[in-house]
């Protein structure tokens, strides 16, 4: 591989990211030429379109995540899961299926468990979100986190953040009265490793101790 080729490859990601903006610039440049409006061509050259695109495409969002207030700006199509993972780098919430079938992305919004992959971030304006990163108190793990470790409530661990967020809510909702009830109210969280037996044991124990480990 020559140096030239390497340089080409290094330039590509930037170009790809700019594709949509380039299109906007080009399209308005074409319009401008058709209208013979030199001012518009000038605006495109000064990248004013990019600034306009930023203003028009993004919506302000005020959101509290794990006790910390954020003032953000997001495109309407960004899901809460992508906001957490890609913009705020809170990668504890997992993208399993991204279609609301697996529960790996479960977080609490205003105290209720929801699927962050099917929640639009802009719709959470003014709300309080808790993710797996916000469950522990300092270096002290939440009782449910301790119980999952004690009972081996996971194997590969990918579904675990969603399982734990769902399990905490399951007890808060009062739906952990029996193993059958736990299974029914944890059915939105799939585990391909099949750690269900130990997950039920962890929830049963935390519930029996009144939510304490």
């Amino acid at each position: 591989m020559t140096n030239d080729n390497t340089q080409d490859k290094q330039e590509q990601p930037g170009e790809l990211l700019e594709t949509r903006r380039q299109f906007l610039k080009q399209s308005s440049a074409i319009t401008a030429i058709a209208l013979v409006a030199p001012a518009l061509v000038d605006a495109a050259e000064k990248k004013l379109d990019e600034k306009a695109a930023d203003i028009f495409e993004k919506v302000p969002l005020s959101i509290e995540i794990n006790g910390k207030q954020h003032q953000l700006s997001v495109e309407p199509r960004v899901t809460l899961l992508d906001l957490l993972r890609e913009q705020l780098h809170l990668t504890g919430s997992k993208k399993g299926c991204d279609y609301g079938q697996c529960g790996a992305c479960t977080v609490h919004v205003n105290g209720k468990r929801v699927l962050s992959c099917l929640s639009l971030a802009v719709m959470q304006d003014g709300k309080k979100v808790t993710t797996i990163e916000g469950l522990a108190t300092g270096s002290t793990l939440h009782p449910m986190q301790l119980a999952f470790i004690k009972h081996d409530g996971f194997q590969c661990g990918y579904c675990t953040p969603g399982q734990i967020m769902s399990a905490v809510a399951c007890i808060n909702e009062g739906h952990a009265g029996s193993d059958d009830e736990i299974r029914e109210h944890m059915s939105g969280n799939l585990c391909r490793c099949g750690a269900y037996h130990n997950i039920v044991a962890a929830i049963r124990e935390v519930n029996a101790k009144g939510g304490k480990s």
């Binding site: 209720k112 468990r113 699927l115 909702e173 059915s187 939105g188």
Partner: peptide, 9 residues
């Protein structure tokens, strides 16, 4: 219907 998370949405 659905799951507890979806019923909350």
């Amino acid at each position: 219907g659905a799951s507890p998370q979806i019923r909350n949405m």
